[in-house]
């Protein structure tokens, strides 16, 4: 049993993480934080570096939740990595953050969130920033 959260260092990512911490603590379950990048650009600000990862670990420790930080770099889609983590850790909840997007913006890009919502086997909680 676990809570899986897709994390990126942005307002929506923070909102999702905050909510996931609360859910994991109240359920007393493992919190699996997934932060990934397709790694197809030299720079990806959504992929957290060592420094940030350490800060995150410290924060989760302070919150007193049992946690696991996954940073897979296999060239996969972030959605795929979150889904796989959810399967592997038998998630009973997947938490994702949503950006408030205009209808036009939604048209252009197939969003990561949408894929997780459609394909996850566990219930998905979508948090808005």
């Amino acid at each position: 049993m676990s809570v899986v959260v897709g994390y990126i260092p942005t307002p929506e990512g923070e909102a999702a993480l905050e909510r996931a911490i609360r859910e994991a603590r109240s359920g007393g379950t493992l919190l699996v934080v997934v932060n990934t990048s397709r790694g197809d650009a030299l720079v990806d600000q959504r992929f957290i570096q060592q420094q940030q990862a350490e800060n995150l670990a410290r924060r989760l420790e302070a919150e007193g939740v049992e946690h696991l930080l996954l940073q897979p770099l296999r060239g996969h889609d972030p959605a795929e990595e979150v889904l796989e983590a959810a399967r592997e850790h038998h998630a009973d909840l997947v938490v994702i953050g949503l950006r408030r997007r205009s209808p036009v913006g939604k048209l252009i890009l197939g969003s990561t969130a949408q894929r997780i919502l459609l394909q996850a086997e566990a219930p998905v909680l979508a948090v808005k920033a």
């Binding site: 790694g39 650009a41 030299l42 720079v43 990806d44 600000q45 992929f47 570096q49 770099l73």
Partner: peptide, 8 residues
């Protein structure tokens, strides 16, 4: 190719 992205 470098697989691990960096941040600016």
């Amino acid at each position: 190719l470098r697989r691990k992205p960096m941040s600016t």
